[in-house]
Design a protein around this nucleic acid. Structure first.
Length: 574
DNA sequence: GCCGTTTTCGGCCCGACTGTTTTCAGTCG
């Protein structure tokens, strides 16, 4: 049983207990345990085998026993009893906007509703508003939200997509009269791999005016809620956007609040409480009612004696303790990247020539650029024959002469890890290349042992320098290969093989938790764009965001190294 | 149900908006 499956069970338990009206902190405990499993990075089975389940944050005796039962028997008696009592379909009913545990319980008890479809039928027949305390407006809103839920394909969109939409909205907001500042918060600012909704924050004196101007933006399809300081809307493309507006002197605390995560904010407010302060989006309040305003986010943390915590760390994954102990990492930044180690050109499936890619790299101030086209067996992507590879070398040398010393071009290759575990070129060919990236594109669905073995064999090949997009996942489209991540990380650390964080927003592979585990295992990483066009160099911000979420510092990322150091390393590998 | 250099028991973040009511519960982030 996988981490995610166990997390889902705990989250459903939390929902059902809430509908049952159980103690709220018991419910929170199950949600926190679910979150802990999702952000673990390691296979919980390994933790279980070590007997250290209770060392996980949010996992105590009772929940550890439940994880144990699930891993041993694939079943959970507590869960089975609970679902016999409260229909599990009610957990889905909670996903409908405007329906929380209290209403779900009443629909079930008074109307016998146990699933979303039944709720829809009841709403259409006007049965909901016959209940006391529920009017026709609530009924209409619930029906509307059921239809909205059905329209949404996955519910979450890719980071890259959210980024683009947010930038458009922010620049429009900044043009509004009276707006002094506008920033994105939420999971976008934290650079999560997918985004559920956009959280935008504006600093302005006349906040209702800004809110009113925002809700009539042409891309707004419907208004879900609107007050003097916040509005919630759905855009024509279905994306939901929250806008908060606060006076500039409160911008820092408001931005901190809007950035989250919820878990981080709860922890921070607990720290505030211990020194007799109450923290909200408006600022700090002392016990006598006096306010401390924070125009800048740094001040929110400074009041508690903490250094500013970068948004990408704010996941309640130990960052507040690290801040207290002055042990926050010196995070990698975009400016630290000195070059790019994984790109494609028209020689295989890229859309630009070597010189076009080189010129774009120069424009971005890179010191070096690796052209790494696909190997021969990936015919669908125009993989290069050994002869083509030699012609390409001539071409790269020719371009190098044209561009001079502004950029150093290296010839690499993204070599296929074949289904049988061999590489797509013989060692003699790999040896001629400046750098070798080995990747899986095919037979990703092999059983765990087999795919893992392919990767282990690849890592042991002395000519392989980097493993590209380790799991092969495409977020929301293709599941990652089933791998023994820990065995692979251990081997990579041992053989000094670098693992790539592929920055393409569809991949982000390694993902944050795996990258964090890789660093803890002693692996080095590279942040690569896998660019097939100069525009794709923009993906670097997502790769850096992912690396930051893994608590990565620049020295662990090989393409922050200057060229001479990189070349010494490559030479040492033979 | 978890957790502890204030605690092994008694705490566990905080406010905005909505709808249906007449003062607030429910939902949401």
């Amino acid at each position: 049983m996988k981490n995610r499956e166990i997390a889902e069970i705990f989250e459903t338990i939390a929902d059902l207990l809430e509908i049952k009206g159980e103690a709220v902190y018991r419910i929170i405990a199950y949600r926190r345990a679910g979150e802990a499993l999702r952000s673990l990075g390691r296979d919980v089975k390994k933790v279980w085998e070590e007997g250290s389940l209770e060392a996980l944050p949010g996992v105590g005796k009772a929940i550890a026993a439940k994880i144990d039962e699930l891993l041993r028997t694939d079943r959970l008696e507590f869960y089975e009893k609970l679902t016999a009592e409260v229909p599990p379909g009610l957990a889905d009913v909670l996903k409908v906007g405007g329906v929380g545990p209290k209403k779900a319980a009443r629909f079930w008890e008074e109307l016998g509703i146990t699933a979303i479809d039944e709720l829809e039928q009841a709403a259409r027949k006007g049965k909901l508003h016959q209940l006391s305390g529920i009017g026709e407006r609530s009924e209409a809103r619930i029906l509307e939200n059921i239809l909205a839920l059905k329209r949404q394909h996955t519910g979450r969109i890719l980071l890259g997509e959210a980024w683009t939409t947010a930038q458009k909205l922010l620049s429009r907001l900044r043009e509004l009269k009276g707006v002094q500042r506008a920033e994105a918060g939420g999971s976008l600012r934290r650079m999560c791999e997918t985004i559920g909704d956009l959280d935008l924050l504006v600093g302005a004196e006349d906040t209702p005016l800004v809110i009113q101007a925002f809700v009539v933006f042409p891309e707004v399809d419907r208004i879900l809620g609107q007050g003097g300081t916040k509005a919630s809307v759905e855009l024509v493309d279905g994306l939901r956007v929250q806008l908060w507006a606060h006076p500039p002197e409160r911008f820092g605390s408001a931005l901190q609040y809007a950035t989250g995560s919820q878990g981080h904010n709860v922890r921070l407010r607990e720290v505030a409480q211990k020194v007799g302060l109450s923290l909200s989006e408006h600022g700090y309040q002392d016990q006598k009612g006096g306010m401390i305003f924070c125009p800048e986010e740094e001040e929110v943390y400074a009041v508690l004696g903490l250094p500013w915590i970068p948004p990408t760390l704010r996941e309640d994954r130990g960052e507040i303790k690290a801040a207290k102990d002055s042990e926050l990492p010196q995070l990698i930044e975009l400016e630290d990247l000195k070059g790019e180690l994984h790109t494609h050109s028209v020689w295989s499936d890229g859309r630009s020539s070597v010189i076009e890619m080189a010129e774009a790299a120069i424009e971005l101030g890179m010191e070096y650029l690796v052209i790494s086209d696909h190997s021969r067996s990936l015919t669908i992507a125009g993989g290069l024959s050994i002869k083509d590879l030699q012609s390409q070398r001539t071409e790269i040398k020719r371009v190098q002469k044209i561009i001079g010393k502004k950029l150093t071009l290296l010839q690499g290759c993204e070599v296929e890890i074949l289904a049988n575990g061999a590489l797509d070129y013989p060692d003699e060919v790999l040896q001629e290349l400046d750098i070798v990236i080995a990747s899986l594109h095919t037979s990703l669905r092999q059983p765990r042992e087999q795919v893992t073995e392919r990767l282990l064999r690849t890592i042991k090949n002395p000519h392989v320098d980097i493993i590209g997009h380790l799991t092969g996942r495409l977020i929301g489209k293709r599941d990652p290969a089933d791998l023994d991540i820990e065995a692979i990380l251990q081997a990579a650390a041992e053989h000094d093989v670098v693992l790539e964080i592929n920055s393409n927003p569809e991949r982000l592979d390694l993902k944050d938790t795996h990258a964090r585990l890789a660093l803890a295992s002693g692996c080095r990483l590279a942040i690569n764009t896998d660019a097939h066009h100069p525009d794709h160099f923009n993906f670097r911000r997502y790769g850096v965001g992912t690396a930051q979420r893994a608590w990565a510092e620049a020295p662990s990322i090989v393409n922050t190294w200057p060229l001479d150091r990189l070349q010494v390393w490559l030479k040492s590998r033979g």
